[in-house]
């Protein structure tokens, strides 16, 4: 535990010091929320989910914030590799599993904090939290998204030589995951041939889970959401730990 805490602590220190990163990664989901939310609020009719597009969009933007921050946090170990710091950690008499778990929890914490900031800001643009239990449930889903996608980032970083592939991963993996997750629109409104694809996107269940927690309405049963994203978290953590064990310097 103490080793996991040590790695986590380092992540927190770096996070708190990188003010520009904090603000930078808040700004994108926040702008999405403001421009899309207010811009489309009067145009978009949501069948069966009340009329308010902003309230629909908030859980999606919270999930987006957690997703991008966590993948980025995971992939960051490439920098540790390049700047040599990873060697210092790997040559210590500690297991790689502990290092990987510390890194995952560190990344997940920063991601959840980022998502939480969006959540708090959302309170000013229309989000009403009437049910504290639902709020905690949403937080739980954020934690699962954070852990699974940081582990996903670590898994990718363990096989990557440098940051040149980063843009590729962002454009061809992370962005489609986000786009297909139902963060921006209800998955039921998609054409019949795309609809089923969204069900293969683990983030869909994360977004729907958060949405259920915050608004009380979701298109997928929250229990199913919990089971799928929970299972995905376990699989990603195992995969990340496995690939990190084989990392070469």
């Amino acid at each position: 535990m103490d080793i996991i805490y040590t790695i986590w602590l380092r992540n927190m220190k770096r996070y708190i010091r990188s003010k520009s990163r904090i603000i930078g990664s808040i700004s994108m989901p926040l702008f999405f929320l403001l421009f899309l939310g207010f811009g489309l609020n009067s145009v978009v009719q949501l069948p069966g989910i009340g009329g308010n597009y902003i309230v629909f969009l908030i859980p999606g933007m919270v999930a987006m914030s957690v997703l991008f921050t966590s993948v980025f946090s995971g992939i960051q170990i490439i920098w540790d590799k390049q700047f040599g710091f990873l060697k210092e950690t790997l040559v210590a008499p500690v297991s790689r599993l502990e290092i990987m778990l510390g890194q995952t929890l560190g990344g997940a914490t920063t991601a959840v904090l980022q998502g939480f900031m969006i959540l708090v800001l959302s309170l000013f643009i229309g989000l009403h939290v009437s049910n504290p239990g639902g709020f905690l449930l949403a937080l739980g889903f954020m934690v699962l998204i954070g852990i699974s996608f940081t582990a996903f980032g670590i898994a990718i970083a363990s096989r990557m030589e440098d940051m040149t592939g980063f843009q590729l991963i962002m454009n061809f993996v992370v962005f489609p995951l986000f786009g297909l997750s139902g963060a921006l629109f209800p998955i039921s409104s998609l054409p019949a041939w795309i609809g089923p694809i969204t069900l293969f996107d683990p983030l869909t269940y994360g977004v729907e889970g958060i949405r259920y927690g915050l608004t009380g309405v979701s298109q997928i049963n929250p229990l199913v959401c919990g089971a799928v994203i929970g299972g995905f978290t376990v699989v990603m953590t195992i995969l990340g730990a496995f690939l990190f064990r084989k990392i070469k310097l």
């Binding site: 602590l9 220190k13 770096r14 040599g84 710091f85 060697k87 210092e88 008499p93």
Partner: peptide, 22 residues
Amino acid sequence: DQSLDEELTAWENMDFHGRLYR
């Protein structure tokens, strides 16, 4: 090659190492 964390202070780099070695 250098293997310090440039974002941390000298003390924190030492402390991190000390914790890793329990």
